[in-house]
């Protein structure tokens, strides 16, 4: 891994070179009261005055709604148009936080578990992730408790750490090297070794290894009912989450043509596990809340060698009733 340095005034120059070399750059922009990822044409559009975007960057790899295939009936003939990998743009995901970059591990795992998802994998192959270390954090952040950190490089192709007059550039992958090669002359070697002094402090609040072990035996605990009592059962937490990957398959028929779609779904909804018979194995919000935490901290780690949470804190910020996941996990950690 190369560690380089770029001057502040050169970052926009490099950005323009990147913009010219790919189909789209997706970066955080301010829209009214929220900051969201969107396609950006000019470097100046990129938001800087925020801790975290409302939604995660997962949409770039796993959109809210996407077409699996479409069809057209002509008499007895049916023409099926499959997903075309060539339609996927070559993208650079610019200025994600390290906690968003880290979300590629659980996403990669679930979309390659047994079936290799062509749509996800094509997007993943064609997306270069440029993350930016966090110089600020807020009280919802807990990346350091789930194996991450304000300057963590995992999942990034390049990690930038802004200094007072430029940025430290950690080139993590070959994809990252290609971006640097676009403007090789703008980079110099970095030797100061003072990266940590530019990072936000995010205190660790629990030991995730102990927590995982403990949660493994907590299926019948009363804690789920206690914690979920105020939960209203909406899907905000799952939809803003960088790692939640549950989806629904929907038909959109229109006479002789139509399409099959994949769209986000959430285990917080009462209907998520409702059977045709009327039976619902997760009939209470307590059982749905248990599923949310167990999935992230027990089931995914058991099956996929990855955690289902990167500590971004988005679910807590988005929740209408302040279900603060960091607080809930800490209180589980403290149960004797």
């Amino acid at each position: 891994m190369d560690t380089l340095y770029i001057k502040k005034s050169d970052i926009a120059v490099w950005w323009a070179a990147i913009k010219g070399a790919c189909d789209h750059v997706v970066a955080p922009v301010r829209k009214d009261r929220v900051v969201e990822f969107a396609r950006v044409e000019n470097y100046e559009e990129i938001a800087t005055d925020y801790v975290q975007t409302t939604r995660s960057a997962k949409e770039v790899l796993f959109p809210r709604t996407e077409r699996l295939f479409s069809y057209q009936k002509n008499g007895r003939d049916i023409e099926v148009k499959d997903f075309d990998p060539q339609s996927v743009p070559v993208q650079v995901l610019w200025q994600v936080r390290p906690c968003d970059a880290a979300s590629v591990f659980p996403l990669d795992a679930v979309f390659n578990w047994d079936y290799k998802d062509v749509m996800y994998n094509t997007r993943r192959e064609r997306t270069t992730i440029v993350a930016v270390s966090c110089s600020t954090a807020d009280e919802y952040c807990f990346c350091t408790s789930v194996g991450g950190g304000a300057g963590d490089t995992r999942g990034s192709d390049i990690l930038l750490t802004y200094t007072t007059d430029g940025a430290i550039v950690e080139v993590v992958t070959e994809r990252g090297e290609k971006l640097v090669a676009l403007s090789q002359n703008l980079f110099t070697a970095y030797t100061a070794g003072d990266k940590d002094s530019y990072l936000a402090s995010v205190p660790q609040v629990f030991d995730v290894e102990k927590l995982k072990e403990k949660m493994h035996g907590m299926f019948d605990s009363t804690v789920w009912k206690e914690q979920s009592e105020r939960c209203l059962g909406c899907g905000a937490c799952a939809y803003v989450c960088p790692t939640c990957s549950c989806f629904d398959i929907q038909e959109n028929p229109k006479g002789s043509c139509g399409e099959r779609l994949r769209c986000w779904d959430s285990c917080g909804f009462a209907q998520f596990t409702l059977h045709t018979s009327g039976h619902n194995p997760r009939s209470t919000q307590a059982s749905r809340w248990r599923q949310r935490l167990m999935h992230k901290f027990s089931y995914i780690p058991q099956r996929q060698d990855s955690l289902g949470c990167t500590g971004c804190g988005r679910c807590s910020r988005a929740c209408p009733v302040d279900m603060n996941i960091k607080e809930h996990l800490s209180s589980i950690d403290k149960i004797q």
Partner: peptide, 24 residues
């Protein structure tokens, strides 16, 4: 265009108490 269909608006409303909402 920003709506993610999380239905937090419905969940927070005391008058949205239908056991089966039209969208479900």
């Amino acid at each position: 265009s920003k709506c993610i269909k999380c239905y937090a608006c419905r969940a927070a409303c005391p008058m949205c108490y239908c056991t089966r909402c039209i969208v479900d």
